Simulated assay, not measured.
Amino acid sequence: MTKPPGAQGDPSGGPGEPRSDRWSDLGRPPLNSAALRRALVREGGHGGLYCDVEVVQRTGSTNHDLVQLALKGDAEEGAVLVAEEQTAGRGRLDRVWTAPPRSGLFFSVLLKPTEVPVRHWGWLPLLTGVAVATGLSRAAGVDTALKWPNDLLVTVGGEERKAGGILAERAGSEGVVIGIGINVSLREEELPVPAAGSLALAGAVSTDRDPLLRAVLRSLEEWYGRWREAGGDPSASGLQETYAAGCATLGRTVRAELPGDRSVVGEAVAVDGDGRLVIATEDGVQEPVGAGDIVHLRPV
């Protein structure tokens, strides 16, 4: 994978690599791309999902960079781009995602599920959510939940807070770039908004980003493999059932803010075969929602 234009070098510290005071926080050590490659990339590039892992010190958005590389033909399926700091990270609806350098995991993965019917590709963000929650549960010992469609929730002081998010973007006709952002070691005073959280604030047994990243990527490889083998079928792959089991939105009264300034209020009762959230309204109508902003109106 060619390094994205404008990205700065590997923060793990090669000869002559520029360093500054803000990179000297020993409680937040840099990631080592060589060690990550050894752990995740199979010898010869065969037999596994990942073909390369690149760590850059600072960039605007790993999703933007990886989409551009894919469109130019400079990135293959399984390319992983990680940034120690993002200056223009985005969530859904173009919301800004900011965090101090090395305080989280900010990375993107290029997937090319060409053998899966395109109608099933909408499951990729939900699949990634399951993979992230599973990997973090194993490596960080934190109880996580998923807010439909793509938020990772943790419990801090008895309240639900967002600690991560997922953004999927098409990269031409054959590829999808999945961007993942996870707040790992952010302290209360560093949170961008009061409703945000982090693994550290949720009582994680470890905030070492290296094993956390490996666990998430291995979990993603496992779930992506199951889904592809099932032809993208969310039921046959076990994805639909697993997502529903970990989804904090189901069973809640929610408000869906839909395109066109329309909203729907009701109980979230299911995630259907297309990955849409089904909302049962007071009028007895079950309305599937495929895109929109979901607000939880009452706690679990």
Rank of each mutant, 00 (worst) to 15 (best):
V156H: 06
L136F: 07
A145V: 02
V193C: 11
D25H: 13
R252S: 13
T242Q: 14
R119H: 09
V142F: 14
G157W: 03
R19P: 04
T249E: 11
G292H: 02
G16E: 08
E54S: 14
A83E: 08
P259F: 04
G141T: 02
S198A: 07
W123G: 03
L277A: 00
A75N: 06
A236I: 00
C51P: 00
E85R: 11
C247R: 04
W23R: 14
L93T: 14
D261E: 15
A34M: 03
P101V: 11
E222L: 10
T134H: 12
L31Y: 08
V41M: 01
E287V: 15
G164M: 06
V116K: 08
S263N: 11
L212F: 07
R42L: 08
G44M: 02
S185Y: 07
L111Y: 02
T128S: 15
E17T: 12
V271Q: 10
G6M: 08
P101G: 08
T281P: 01
G44Q: 01
L153T: 01
L126H: 00
S12A: 15
D208H: 06
Q57K: 11
D94I: 13
V130P: 07
T59R: 02
R170I: 03
A39P: 01
E189P: 06
V265R: 15
G45D: 06
R228W: 02
R58V: 07
E169F: 05
P192K: 02
S33A: 15
K72R: 13
L220F: 15
